[in-house]
Write a protein that binds this DNA or RNA. Sequence first.
DNA 1: ATTAAATACATGTATATACACGCAAAATAA
DNA 2: TTATTTTGCGTGTATATACATGTATTTAAT
Lengths: 152, 152
Amino acid sequence: MKLEQAIQSTRFKNETHKASLNILYTAWWLKTTMSKSLKEYGLTHEQYNVLRILKGKYPDQMCVRDIACRMIEKNSNVPRIIDRLEIKKLVVRTTSQLDKRETVITITAGGLVLLQATTVSMETLFDQTLELSENDAKTLNLLLEKVREKES
Amino acid sequence: MKLEQAIQSTRFKNETHKASLNILYTAWWLKTTMSKSLKEYGLTHEQYNVLRILKGKYPDQMCVRDIACRMIEKNSNVPRIIDRLEIKKLVVRTTSQLDKRETVITITAGGLVLLQATTVSMETLFDQTLELSENDAKTLNLLLEKVREKES
DNA sequence: ATTAAATACATGTATATACACGCAAAATAA
DNA sequence: TTATTTTGCGTGTATATACATGTATTTAAT
């Protein structure tokens, strides 16, 4: 679907303005599409992101700050996402003995199993849903980084 | 900043996978950047979106459903966003006489003035922050629509 | 005409986002 | 060593997101 149909608007100041709305809309669409699959595993988008980050360092533990700075959405309230993962026994919280201010998080065996299944489902989704050639994707990545060039 | 630095990850399955994360991160960045400016006017991202939609039809009124289907994020809870705009006297709610189920919304004179100032600020932000040529933006728009080709 | 179904909106719940504040521990300065 | 600042995390508040449910009104079916 074209952006014009999606948000029922045809008046854009210029192509850059349209691109901004297009990025926001595409991200919403992508998040929604992913969330539908994640729901089958009882995970939210943010919970999945935290589990993936933990797996990236596994079997090492990570503190909350390290997880937070790797999140896609930087203002995520990581302690509260961990609360929910802990209730589901997907991660374990411990106080660091080296620095007692730090809470260190470990993904559990159950967390790893669930994550593995979920990741397969996500990769299938990307392969089957995103109609991008490797070259198109490369161009897209370059352009998105241009958008953020003046990143603060 | 490159995506790799932003989310401190270098392991992407392929360029398409990286592009997905890049879209999500860029949208977050864009929303955050806009929100900083919007805050000066006491508006959130979603409130600004609703006001712009209302102005697009002004002086006509719009019902909640019409506003909702024009939102960038489709699952927005429009009645509650309108609650907050109404408190700030930026919009007025009335029950439609033609169909008493419908609530019709009108942007107020105050709403129009605030929106005008905010829109100028947003356009300045786009012009000064987004480093995209008209051609780059066009390519980006094409690629994003390719991403959503299999939109449900 | 009466009943059933659909529609438009409001409201409730759980989670997330954005941001502020507070506490305890650690690092630094005096 | 003591005092000050910084850091890491938890928690609180307002708003938003995602979804389910409730209520009134309209439309359609019988």
